[in-house]
Nucleic acid binder design. Sequence first.
RNA 1: GGGCGUGUGGCCUAGUCUGGAUAUGGCACCGGCCUCCUAAGCCGGCGGUCAGGGGUUCGAAUCCCCUCGCGCCCGCCA
Length: 572
Amino acid sequence: MMRFRKQAEERCRKVLEKSGCGDAEITLETPPEDLGDLAFPCFSLAKRLRKAPQKIAEDLSADMEPSGLIERIEANGPYVNFFMDRSKLAEEVLRDVLEEGKGYGRLDKKNVRILLEHTSANPTGPLHVGRARNPIIGDTMARILRMAGYDVTSEFYLNDVGRQVVVLSYGVRELELDTEPERDKDDYRLVLHYQKANALMEEDPSVLDEINGMLYDLEHGNEETIRQVRSACERVLAAIMNTLDEINVKIDQFTWESKFIEEGQVEGVIETLKKSPLCKQEEEGAYALELDSYGIHGRDADFVFTRKDGTSLYTTRDLAYHLDKFGRCDIAINVLGEDQKLGQTQLAAALDIIGEERRPEWIFYAFVSLPEGRMSTRKGQVVYLDDLLDEAVDRALSEVKKRRGDISGERMTEIARSVGRGAVRFNIVRIQAEKQIVFKWEEALNFEGSSAPFIQYSHARACSILRKAEREGLDWKGYDPSCLSEKQELDLTKAIGMLPLIVEECAEGRKAHTMAQYAVELAIMFNQLYQFVSVLKAPERERKARLALVEASKICLGNVLGLLGIDAPEEM
RNA sequence: GGGCGUGUGGCCUAGUCUGGAUAUGGCACCGGCCUCCUAAGCCGGCGGUCAGGGGUUCGAAUCCCCUCGCGCCCGCCA
């Protein structure tokens, strides 16, 4: 597909040069069905050539010779339409896919290091569905970027410094639980300590004092406090990682926020910022930067970077973290909730003030809410990711039981886990990041149409055909791609051929949802083939070619599921 | 109040950056398809003032301006 596009561009370029428009921009688009595979619109040339676009299209197309992957070039109204040589395409696509296997879709190595920060949840309690958008988008992007040839490191930035974790640590040390945790897991257990400590802190000033004292100790290197806080955080983190593991989210590295205080980078940042002419000291003693000149206005313009006691604030430490990041990568990408936008704008301004030229990139996502409103642990208005996963796996298990009486209970459970967990991931990643999601159980547990099970099912069907073929001693060796001529065969081949282009598009646009979109398209194409074309019962030549196409479909579907972090079971 | 984002059939959603042919797909609903490779599937049908108004353009869901709805932010919290 990439080659086809390049060849079409070349044709246009050549002809345009002849007519004195060599510098014109060539944008090729996808025409409606049956009008071709790529189209060159001639509107923009109308003025320069002082001719009707229809006439231009005719003249240009008359001047182009089809060759390579281009079978036909036709003018249609104001467009020059390019038709692919479908059988040559089939030949190339099948050869590539069957040769490359799991590597199909992989782009050339770029030798560019990307540090992708995602998840970075506060280790104070269990992950809820709202927060789950971060690891899912982040992990999917990590997979896509790797496929696109980048060297990717995913990183979880852990807050073990702020007030929240001190409250957690205080609660764990001082308070006995009077209620049972919802699950026998440290994130559910410790969040109760955290909540109890929070409540106590509000009614008892001496507790608040003690917590403030711990916060001060923490920032000033008191080893015992640091140890206590870290240990509480680690327990919650381990439980969170347990949940993330359930949805195939892999984290390469953890960076603890306290590191930048201990090693002095935060102090360095503060000293540098204080020297800036934009720095001022507030009445109470805290330091701030006036960022009006950075396009930040009104109440947002003051970026306070120390407390009155001189201790650092979140964004100040984030600044030190970013300087550290830049030393370890070529591109830093942060996956963050949209509530972080202002802070990150201030961070970018502060980087400039420090004299750092580099900036991180951001993928911001909107929050997931419930039909009754914003998720809130306090109001009990939450859906925990663990509960959603359990529900999805249960639902999948009852579906498997309904249709598969022939396999062991163990195998059923295995399939149900893959299906249920995949459904959850897909349901969240399918939607554009900046769009808000209202979580609805019936949507999250939808196993039809645009869903993970739909895609997994296509993959399982392909596997099933290949399994039967093997059992009957049939294979695709010596297949002849030129006998693929049915519409379903050619459309599917084209869809498979798109994968490298989709990988590039998703990687460069930092868009994970486009991959989900593509997965659905691919599955639809395969299901149509399955419906209309018989493989095993076809005459030998057709059978071999179709088996090769089914094998390629299986590989492509499997690779796409892999990019989405969704299991690809061989049977369902 | 200010800033950022978002608004597409009853519901969810793609396309918006980079304007182009008949606006993508799903759910729900209606009607068909399992003696044949898994019906978590396939085929057909119904359903649209692309939030509203103005502008730019040969051409606007897409760009610009205004208005409205929704979300997020505007802590010496993280």
